[in-house]
């Protein structure tokens, strides 16, 4: 199979879905002329025309609000935020409109829209470097995906576009350049709500999200050399969330570490911990460990940024502590 980058996989998903379905439209700040801040959408306006690919004023609130309107009136808009952090600007439109209107209006509308959210700390400071998935896991009605591989980036985006619910699609900035095999089949889809077991093992369950997945796999490699075969699970989709996959793994291992780039308090790991308490307490042999962003704004200074971001060493240390 051919190998492409995560960024190319996203673009390929957009192209395929726009070709497949004329109701898919794409807009955002600088997505047309400039090709998007991370050059994901470059050349798409030439391919699909100004009606389907166009630039908007600098107002995330307006462009997400317009997407809600477009979605409930028959289009399938895909909008790009330059940084996932700008989701906070769109709060009312995302949380109260996109997330709730299908329910609030008794199913009279569907809200088939995708908001692409480049996430992750990458030397861009507190307002452009967050992984805010957990904030929106708290809101009903929103689908949330965080692909970690090029294949999932493509397959999940295509599923997201075809889904009749609003999807927040978190694409990690540091993953854009990563490469991997990606199917060319235009009907290749990765279903929402299905976790991937990236590596099998029985010593410990390491749940890793987004850019934490490649780090987790390196940790697993290192632990295997030390005789501990751990299981690495990539949830891929945070809503819907594949609880059975994690519970089954924990039944096997009894120990769990969650690695994520969200803030620790009420983060994804907190939710997983609570879920295990409710549904699988009797299988836990150790307290759950969370490797997450400490509850501080992400520093702009590079050294400090590296200090707070969960890295291989921190994940390794947490695993070792449970394996002791």
């Amino acid at each position: 199979m051919r190998t492409i980058t995560y960024a190319q996989a996203i673009k390929e998903a957009l192209e395929e879905e726009m070709r497949r379905d004329p109701s898919v439209v794409l807009y955002g700040e600088d997505v047309a002329n400039f090709g998007g801040i991370f050059q994901i959408t470059s050349g798409l306006q030439e391919q699909f025309g100004e009606d389907r690919v166009f630039d908007t004023p600098i107002s995330e609130n307006a462009l997400v609000g317009a997407a809600v309107g477009a979605a409930i009136t028959g289009l399938r808009p895909v909008v790009e935020l330059q940084f996932a952090d700008f989701l906070f600007t769109t709060g009312d439109e995302i949380v109260l409109k996109a997330g709730m209107w299908r329910y609030v209006h008794g199913g009279a509308y569907k809200v088939p829209m995708v908001v692409r959210c480049p996430s992750g700390a990458a030397g861009v400071g507190p307002e452009h470097g967050q992984c805010p998935e957990a904030f929106f896991m708290h809101s009903p009605g929103l689908r949330i995906v965080s692909p970690s591989t090029p294949a999932d980036a493509k397959g999940l985006l295509k599923s997201a576009i075809r889904d009749d619910n609003p999807v927040l699609y978190f694409e990690h900035k540091l993953l854009y350049a990563t490469k991997g095999e990606v199917p060319e089949d235009p009907d290749f889809l990765v279903p929402l709500g299905k976790a991937a077991v990236r590596r099998e093992g029985d010593a410990l369950t390491l749940v890793a999200i987004s850019a934490m997945v490649p780090k987790a796999l390196k940790v697993a490699e290192r632990l295997a050399k030390e005789g501990h075969h751990i299981e690495v699970i990539d949830p891929r989709s945070l809503n819907p969330f594949d609880r059975p996959a994690i519970i089954e793994s924990v039944k096997k291992t009894g120990k769990i570490v969650v690695a994520e780039e969200s803030y620790k308090t009420l983060g994804v790991g907190a939710e997983i911990g609570a879920m295990l308490m409710e549904e699988a307490l009797e299988y836990l042999d150790r307290p759950l460990k969370r490797v997450a962003m400490p509850d501080v704004p992400i520093p702009t200074a590079a050294v400090l940024e590296q200090f707070v971001i969960p890295n291989e060493e921190k994940i390794y240390a947490a695993c070792r502590e449970l394996l002791a």
């Binding site: 009894g254 307490l281 009797e282 299988y283 836990l284 042999d285 150790r286």
Partner: peptide
């Protein structure tokens, strides 16, 4: 003998199961 009647046993839920 130290662990006499009524003393809490600190065991993981998995160990207890």
């Amino acid at each position: 003998l130290n662990a006499s009647a009524g003393k809490r046993v600190a065991a993981s839920p998995r160990a207890k199961r």
